Simulated assay, not measured.
Amino acid sequence: MSTQKKVLVTGGAGYIGSHVCKALHANGHIPIVFDNLSTGHERFVKWGPLHLGDITNPDDLNDAFAKRHPDLVMHFAASAYVRESVADPMKYYVNNCLGSLRLLDAMQCHGVKHIVVSSTCAVYGDCKSLPIDESTPKDPQSPYGRSKLFVEQALRDLGNASDLKWVALRYFNAAGSDPDLEIGEDHTPETHIIPLAIQAALGMAPALQIFGDDFDTPDGTAIRDYVHVNDLATAHVNAMTYLENGGASSAFNLGTGTGTSIKDILDTIKRLSGHDVPHSVTARSPGDVPALYASATRANRYLDWTPTQSSLDNIIKTALNWYRHHRTGKG
């Protein structure tokens, strides 16, 4: 274990950020949540202080750095819906691009040199060769993906011009929940396929809408690489240690290397819950691609990371348990 660090976690009251805060605390660190609670939950802030603030507000950021004195930053604060980004691109360029630049500027002003950034597989777009590795050409198909690629490019340029050291972690579909049931997935609105399907199966939400069953995939439904949120949390702690030990700035894929279709998800929920998932099929969403799944060979080599909790059964089981025990409607 590395020596205790104070980690400013932007977006730490959200789904992935809160699981990372729990992992940081378990590894002896102090997570300081920086969040405006626009989509996060104060009840998810359990392992360190909450500093209220907006990522796009320089005064809020400078106040947090001046009062909290973090040793490094983990950056999750962002808008993250592909369909919404197509309809409202300005929101994504302001929150994701401008917000990240203001965070990086505050880091420079306060002498903080290490950052681990939440990126996304959406930077790749519609890939012709699978699995996707980090050398795959970047061709994002949505403003969301383009905003995240911009942040990666900014990190690279700033790192070349200064002593900033960074890791960008390109997630392939976070899923599942804390097995201890302290935190879980709770978005408003919910757009992720697994919680929507579970809620439909348990009678907690309307029938699931499947956006397209005519993709060029074996069963016609979209294929994605689902990674348990606890495995993602471990990767962030490992990335922090990697930077502390002098690792070079880089981007890493976080995925299982296995593609799972929407039909696979519905079948697994039925088997584990005992309930069918009522659903209907509508047109594909703008910007959606048929299949995305990762090679995480570099994360294994450099970050000593292997997903151990990301079987589809475990993802569905932990998510089911979260909804059965904690979800009673709006957050």
Rank of each mutant, 00 (worst) to 15 (best):
M107F: 12
Y124R: 12
Y92N: 05
A106F: 01
Y323Q: 05
F150D: 10
L98N: 07
L98G: 03
G220D: 00
A77Y: 00
A296D: 04
P31S: 01
R327Q: 15
D225T: 05
K165C: 00
T318Y: 06
T297H: 08
R43C: 06
R83A: 12
T297P: 03
R284A: 03
G257I: 01
S177P: 02
H29M: 09
D35W: 04
D71P: 13
D304M: 00
N95I: 14
K6S: 14
F34M: 06
F215Y: 13
D157K: 11
T3L: 14
A106E: 01
V86H: 12
D105P: 10
P49K: 10
D264Y: 06
D276F: 11
T234A: 08
W47T: 02
S18R: 06
L158M: 12
V237E: 08
L149R: 06
H25K: 13
G14Y: 06
M204D: 09
D288R: 03
A200N: 08
F34L: 10
S249E: 02
P278D: 09
I183D: 01
V151A: 03
F215H: 09
A319Q: 03
V116M: 05
T136L: 09
K22M: 15
H51W: 06
C121L: 08
C121F: 09
S79V: 14
Y93T: 05
L37S: 03
F172C: 03
D133N: 15
V33W: 07
D225F: 02
Y242P: 01
L130F: 10
Y144D: 02
G274C: 06
N321K: 15
H192I: 15
T258G: 07
L303A: 01
N300R: 15
L104I: 03
S285G: 11
T282K: 06
P58L: 10
A239T: 04
H19I: 09
D313W: 04
R298K: 11
P140I: 04
L149H: 07
H275A: 12
V289L: 03
G145Y: 05
V116R: 03
